[in-house]
Structures are given as C-alpha cells and as structure tokens.
Design a protein around this nucleic acid. Structure first.
Lengths: 191, 191
DNA sequence: TTATCGTATTAACATATGTTAATAGGTTTG
DNA sequence: CAAACCTATTAACATATGTTAATACGATAA
C-alpha cells in the first residue's frame, strides 16, 4: 500500500510498525456519483482518505435548503469528523459528486490505536492540526472576503471546478445563490 | 495546582505523572485590560488557559478594519494556535478585553512533551477535537444563521456579554457593523 | 458644574444579495 | 426526432446590511 504509506508519511513521519497497525484497519472502497459516505441524522463509523473524485459536505436547514460546507478533492481525509468525535448523529451529509475511490478507516478502531500507539496519536494530532488550519482559513474567508473574492479563491484552489460540479453547487459552497454567482461570473468575465 | 489538574482531567483523564510534567512548563500570569497575548505579524510562543477575564482574537484587513473572530471566556484554552502550529507570524491578534488571569504554556515545550508522552499526546488530540467542534459550529453560524440569530445565540452563550465588552466589539464578532447591531437590538427589544 | 470623549442610536442613502419567475440552452429519454 | 428535464442566465423587485453623518447619551476629567 505505497499510496497510503506515502500519504501517512507526508502528514507525519511514522514508524513502519505503526503504519502496519493502521493498514490492518483500512480498506479500499469505490463509490458511485451520488452515493453517500455519511448521512444526516445517522451515526457515522468511518473516516476516509479520498484517492480520486470529489466529495461535498453539506448542512440541510428546516426548509430542506442545502448549504455545502466543504469540497474535498484528492488527496484529503474526509468524513463526518464532528459526529465521529461526539458519537452522535451527523448534522452534515457527505456525498460523492463524482465517482470516488477512497480508503475507509473505522474511526473507533483508529481512536483505539491512538490510545495505544504514541506515533499514531501524534499522527492524529497532526491531522487535527491541518484540519484546524483549514477551518480557520474557511472562517476567514466567510468573515472577510466578499462572494466575488471567495469565488476567485475557489477557482485558484480548484481551477477546473466548473467542469467537476454544477454551478449551483459552487454557489452553495460560496454561501450565495446560483443567481448571484451568475451575476458575479458575468461581471468578472465581461472585463 | 488543583485548578489546572482539574481542568486537564476535565478534558481527558490524564495520569498524575503526565500532569506533573505539564506543570513544569506552565506558569501563572496576569494581564491588564488592553494587553496583548499574541500580536499580528509576530511569531507567538505560548498557549494559555484562561482562568478569568475575556480575550478576543481578531483579524485586521488592509484598511485597518478589525474582525473579531472569537471571544474567549473562562475556562478555555486560547492563543494563536494557527501561528504556533506553522511557526509563522500570526495573522490574528489576541488581546484582553478585561483584566485577565491565565496560565501560560510554552508551545514548543508542550509539543515536545506530546512526542514523548502518550497521555499528553492524547490530551492534545482531545483539545484539538474540542477546537474542531467549536470552529465547525462557528462556520455553521456564519453560513446558515442571519445576524439576528447569531446575536441571540451569543446572548445565550454569554448572557452578560453586553456588560463585558462594548457593542462595537460584539458587532465585529457577529460580522456586522455597530449600526446594524443597533437596528437588530431595536427590532428585538421593541417587541 | 461644564467640557470632553467615547459609545450608541438614528436617518438617509448605497450596495450586495435574496426571491421569484420567465427564458434559453443543453442533455437525456421516449 | 420530439418531449422532458436540468441548468444557467436574466430581469424585476424585495431585503439585509453597509456607509456616512448627525445627534444623543453617559462617563470621566478639568
């Protein structure tokens, strides 16, 4: 499993013996477009390493309106971490916007390994640090940037985003309506 | 140091021997209103446990406008964690809105302990998990709630917030102008 | 006490974005 | 091919919030 070993070591240099332990609880899976990897209201069991494809996470409000909170592209860890930590039903759904190839990890088994193995505990801390930095940046974007700036930033991060998913999903990720995204695109590309 | 021991154990039950190690790198400090515990553009060295007082973290944009990102009340960990993780100049400032009593922890020494001591590594993971949940909730608030709802939520979390800090700070935390907060308050309290 | 200063409110106007609905393209399906 | 469907665009209008400036209020200092 060179792919996984490399991914783990890119996060935090980890002894082979610890990686061996991790590999025993990791399995490969494929999902189709539209498949869900974690559902609203259900207690999730797994976290994932995304090898290929695009996954979105989203809230749903009382009216059924969806708010995409995050877009995941390879190589990233993904899954309903908040619900896994709390062992409660997830407030977010996660589903595949394209066909996805993932490695699936049982979170409880993983947490058990963190309690037993110092290197794995350190690995987990480092992953949480990365996630912290990502969320902090997301809060900055939502607080300080306007919708046009958020759109340009997304385009910079994922240049072919327009080909990967429909615009109404992009709009939701930017926390605006498709109508407003259309206006912004018109404004930008008319120049 | 019963206060600290209790605080640590409330996060994650930790062996006394590990707590002993932690206590060797922790020191008590007091700050005056307006003092800074981490400055924009400077590489920070410490994280803190807030024992009393109110601390705010904030961005500053090119025009010098401040965006309060978080308000910390006891008992919470605080400090420029993003900058500490990256060992880079902080994009956020942290300062005391009131007199503050804190415990100060050198982050590098703390990180060194996490590499050596499994229990401390687990403690760090658990702290990061809590922070993750807090930030995820903050993103939800910024995405899904309108300003009135964010205000009511803040009032619920910190009922005496109006007495602790001026309204223009509250407005900044809510990501609106003082003018808009005034409108919202008028609307709410006229009912 | 009066003057000063920081803060909050209010009004008037500007702007970004939301809502709804109509329309136009493109793709899929019968 | 035509029908049906999904998506994006556009227009018209509504709303939340920003900006600026004037005013009022409250605390502190002279």
């Amino acid at each position: 499993m060179k792919f996984l070993t490399d991914f783990i070591n890119s996060i935090e240099k980890t002894p082979d013996v610890s990686i061996e332990k991790l590999l025993t609880i990791i399995s490969y899976k494929e999902f189709k477009k539209g498949d869900s990897i974690a559902k609203l209201g259900e207690i999730p069991s797994d976290v994932y390493v995304l090898k290929s494809g695009v996954i979105r996470s989203f809230f749903t409000d009382e009216k059924g309106k969806e708010y995409i909170r995050n877009l995941f592209i390879p190589v990233k860890t993904t899954g309903a971490l908040g619900a896994l930590i709390l062992n409660k039903p997830s407030r977010l759904s996660y589903d595949c916007l394209t066909e996805c190839k993932v490695y699936s990890i049982n979170f409880n088994k993983f947490k058990k390994l963190t309690k037993e193995d110092k290197a794995i505990s350190n690995l987990y801390s480092t992953i949480l640090e990365y996630i912290f930095l990502t969320l902090e940046s997301k809060i900055y974007d939502l607080s300080v940037l306007n919708a046009t700036e958020r759109y340009l930033k997304l385009k910079k991060q994922i240049p072919d985003i327009e080909h990967l998913i429909p615009q109404y999903h992009i709009a939701s990720y930017l926390n605006i309506t498709p109508v407003q995204l259309s206006r912004i695109r018109k404004e930008i590309y008319s120049k």
